[in-house]
Write a protein that binds this DNA or RNA. Structure first.
Lengths: 343, 343
DNA sequence: GCCGGTCTCCAAAGCGCTTTAAATTTCCGG
DNA sequence: CCGGAAATTTAAAGCGCTTTGGAGACCGGC
């Protein structure tokens, strides 16, 4: 059933029917009701493609996911972010189209998206520090919003980010307050902007207490369980092992915990651990009292908000870029305690 | 730059240019070359929406993700499945559109998709045992393919599944061969079809050796780390605790391992564990020798293949449904060993 | 009774592409 | 040099919708 058939069936013109359905005022209440009813009854839905062609609006938003091995780590949080974004989209009537693109084809992919005109805007994932995609998208002129930020980009753009610097600074402070002095940072890939900011927060907290960061306690890598495990193994065999770990992901924190328990140490007594917790639906941090003390920020919530932000921007053309900085909560669990008095 | 402008610029009709670009034979090689070059130079891409409207093909495939809490467990594997599917789609020139739909709106969502005509086919995720969505889609007539299968559906449809029954049967057999007699099944939600099949495999192996399954060793739930942990805690306090665990997901297996180590037992000596391993990119099962003995089947690979299967079906109309059953590998790691001789 | 204004409704153009039917050009043997 | 087949090219219709520019109908005021 298409518009033509529907209007023929109603004995009205396509114009009137279209207007009635789209809420334009030039149609009497009576006929509007009649039209609405008939549409409902025949289960009529306007053909998206025709509508998009006529209006110039695709009612769809693109997500470009980099496919390189270096970004595989996006995967665990990907599902949650997407569900959050999806909620906002379906509420506003947008579709979500995903493109998985190899790194070297990023530029081509964006140009193609805008030329093919099948999205009204783009969400950018996993920004690197000086991410080339941002100036590219600015030049192209397609509305976009970034999940995260990119350091060293002058011109303003829309983004939503967790305050990674402050979160890790507060977490480090918390450990310092407990008497820890040797704190190992188990960070993500530092080419990623968020990881860079986390390290900055960690370093700032140390510097404020005149502690010089020990390079042997700084790690950056892909956030796997094994990575967390290996890092603890390696650092615990130092002459002067750390008494605390600050971990960038709960998956790596699992590995950290395993290595600690395997060494017959007690988590929260012998060794303290704080992890960042993205509040993933399938990786809850314990049930009642959280297992880990954590800097927590729901990535699903971020998805919801960033999507809404992009929609707002698309629907109010000419608006200046929107930004939102979320503060992570520092929730205390059972993985932290005062530094043991080692000799 | 659109077709009209391009053809004006070339001094040709839109027809000829369109044909040249789409590889039709009614155009001389010389002009084809000229058209191709101009298109390249002006970075011309046909407008997807116009093309879709004219051809009746959307060149897009929809994935409907159920949003209920009961399916949250889809999330961890979701990212990998989608990347696999995305590879196939981009190779074939399809877009992927995601819809997150609350359970009670599933039916409406499918009807809407077909009425709006913005996808050429649908991938169905997380089928339940007697999934109502399958007859619904068959009735609607939109091509679709299921990731998994649904028991008790008579009419044929396209699907791709891992042979869950045989995988868990072989895993159970492997444990039985090692002398284990009390094997605890840590399964997923048994309303999900795959979980049901896994239990069937487990039971078949026991029955073949005339062992009656102990209901106190059968668990079904959402596959979290805590779930694995709790299950071990609970079962190890039985009079006659199990000597082996058969686990449905590597995330739960992490919890199983934690409980075992916390009880000062040695994995692979005191207690054996086999887990199903979806070969997720961010949750590798160890680096060299796998940590866990596992029934392994790459979910990314499944995504790739299922997408290809659906594309094939879409592009050869009138074809009968396609199906593919993948066998999981049973890879031996360090988590299994002979049953200890308990008295 | 006529006129301007307000409500309703409609015909037709246009979005950018494909494709059918037809026109034009080219080619070649006779 | 011609006629007809083959090779190229084109005009125009159509995909299903929105939207512009009017056209009738109806109203109150003069």
């Amino acid at each position: 059933m298409n518009l033509k058939q529907l209007s023929a069936h109603l004995g009205l013109s396509q114009t009137t029917v279209s207007r009635a359905l789209n809420g334009y005022p030039e149609v009497s209440e009576e006929t509007r009701k009649r039209v609405m009813q008939a549409a409902e009854q025949h289960n009529y839905r306007p053909n998206t493609r025709a509508k998009a062609l006529a209006t110039g609006r695709a009612m769809a938003i693109g997500h470009v996911i980099p496919l390189s091995t270096q970004h595989e780590m996006m995967n665990p949080i990907f599902g949650d972010f997407i569900s959050g974004a999806g909620e906002s989209y379906s509420r506003a009537g947008y579709d979500m189209v995903l493109s998985l693109v190899a790194d070297q084809e990023q530029s081509r992919a964006y140009h193609e998206m805008v030329a093919k005109r099948n999205v009204d805007g783009i969400v950018l994932h996993a920004p690197k520090m000086r991410d080339a995609r941002i100036p590219l998208l600015q030049e192209i002129g397609l509305p976009f919003a970034v999940h995260g930020r990119a350091t060293d980009i002058a011109t303003p753009y829309s983004w939503l980010d967790v305050n990674n610097t402050s979160a890790f600074q507060r977490a480090t402070d918390f450990l310092l307050d407990l008497g820890h002095r040797r704190i190992c940072l188990v960070n993500g890939q530092e080419s990623m902007d968020f990881a860079f900011r986390r390290r900055r927060g960690y370093e700032a907290a140390l510097k404020a207490r005149a502690i010089v960061p020990d390079p042997r306690l700084l790690f950056a890598g892909e956030m796997t369980e094994v990575y967390g495990y290996d890092t603890v193994r390696r650092t615990q065999s130092l002459d002067d092992p750390p008494t605390a770990y600050l971990v960038s992901s709960i998956i790596a924190a699992f590995g950290v915990r395993r290595a600690i328990e395997e060494a017959a140490l007690v988590l929260g007594r012998d060794i303290s651990v704080i992890t960042h917790d993205d509040d993933l639906s399938y990786l809850r941090n314990g049930s009642d009292v959280p297992v880990f003390t954590a800097t927590r920020s729901s990535v699903r919530d971020a998805g919801r908000k960033l999507a809404q932000l992009l929609i707002t921007q698309i629907e109010t053309p000419g608006s200046s870029p929107l930004t939102e900085l979320l503060e992570a909560e520092l929730t205390v669990g059972r993985s932290t305690g005062p530094a043991p008095n080692r000799i």
